[in-house]
Design a protein around this nucleic acid. Structure first.
Lengths: 222, 222
DNA sequence: TCATTATATGAACCATTATTCACCTTTATT
DNA sequence: AATAAAGGTGAATAATGGTTCATATAATGA
């Protein structure tokens, strides 16, 4: 399904026994914890191994080097995040635009703030790796999910769905990240997110060729 | 003026002669170049010194440690960026909302894309430092600048200016960053930025308690 | 049971790198 | 010109940290 990782970043070998699958989980969680506690610069292989309760050698059986570990942790996170967004989008099929926006913003915000320190740590960890392939794959999944959702809206229809969708995603994801990183007091955060929803809803209404009320302007064939 | 840097990150001493001011400039530029060429992880004091054509000892005369150097480079960049945005805002005083938005988006976008690799390198470099004080100071300056600009708009008036302003900034800056980092083809980039302007303009019109325009139902198209 | 494969260990190795300091050179001051 | 102050040098130091590998233990299958 997803684009395979470039080989210089992919895992060395895959776990075959239950034992090693558990080890991998432990390593991932330990990586996150060290990343949170010490920052990416002080996240060393030995420290992670120590925290995970395994030896460095074990880590090197699954990851050819430190970057591959960071890469894998990011991959896992983005996978879960994408799944959540996809699920949320699927659930809103056929609903109203306003509802879709609300859910999209809320879902993304929640995903980021459930473990805020983890989110921050992951943002920082990308300095050590080239995560563009990951971001690319993630974006495509989200793009497809929201495009399908928007196309099914009960109260709108978009002639240039790709552009509208891309705009919506850039705006929602960009703004949410911006708000998240600014550590505003809760009241302000809530206010901005609410305004963001208003803004996006209004935008979609503006660019929508109203579906329930038949278009007065003729849809041009392209 | 700006919040003073925390002492553990501030420069060791200030240049008194023209010679050393030039040295500092060279060091800053070298840091950027190494950051771009090798990434933050491989940006070592020796490499920077080499590139700058000075000795490591010289660098340590101005910066107590590597982080202080990164901090200073970021500080300089954000200072210039803030100045540019402030200037742009000042120039649009008394103008229309639409114009303000256009200029704000364009100015920020240009600032980021004039030296895109530098922008990317700086984004990455923050993993090594705690740049929150810098971001805080930057945000406040921008906030003040755009608030003053919005308050002077010829075709709008805002009852809750702080919230509107915060929303606008989160949206514009967040979205621009998002678009910048996604490396979209030029055509798509342009399209999204144009849509962003429409979106923000419409938003400001919606939340504006119309000052000059009649408060009738249909807002005229521009 | 025994052979084979998967998994785990961690001391040792090597390269890298941040930082210092004793000394030198240039510029300012008297 | 003489002295002081600012600026600059770079080999040496000390610590860190990524990676390997010879070896050990556990699981699997025949």
């Amino acid at each position: 399904m997803a684009t395979p990782s470039p080989d210089h970043l992919s895992a060395r070998k895959k776990p075959r026994q239950a034992r090693s699958r558990a080890t991998l989980d432990v390593i991932f969680e330990a990586t996150l914890q060290v990343l949170i506690a010490h920052g990416p610069r002080r996240t060393t292989t030995t420290r992670v191994a120590e925290r995970a309760g395994v030896s460095v050698g074990t880590m090197y059986q699954y990851f050819p080097h430190k970057q591959a570990l960071f890469y894998a942790v990011n991959e896992r996170y983005l996978d879960i995040l994408a799944e959540r967004v996809e699920a949320a989008c699927r659930e809103q099929h056929g609903d109203s635009i306003k509802h879709m926006i609300d859910v999209l913003v809320t879902t993304y915000w929640k995903a980021k703030t459930e473990r805020p320190e983890m989110t921050r740590a992951l943002y920082r960890s990308v300095a050590e790796i080239d995560n563009e392939p990951l971001i690319q794959a993630f974006s495509q999944r989200i793009d497809a999910a929201t495009a399908a959702m928007l196309a099914s809206a009960s109260d709108a229809h978009f002639t240039d769905l790709p552009t509208v969708n891309l705009t919506l995603l850039s705006t929602v994801f960009g703004t949410v990240r911006s708000v998240f990183e600014h550590r505003l007091p809760d009241a302000k955060t809530d206010a901005v997110l609410r305004q963001l929803m208003v803004m996006c809803t209004t935008y979609l209404e503006t660019v929508s060729t109203a579906s329930s009320a038949p278009a007065s302007a003729t849809p041009s064939s392209e």
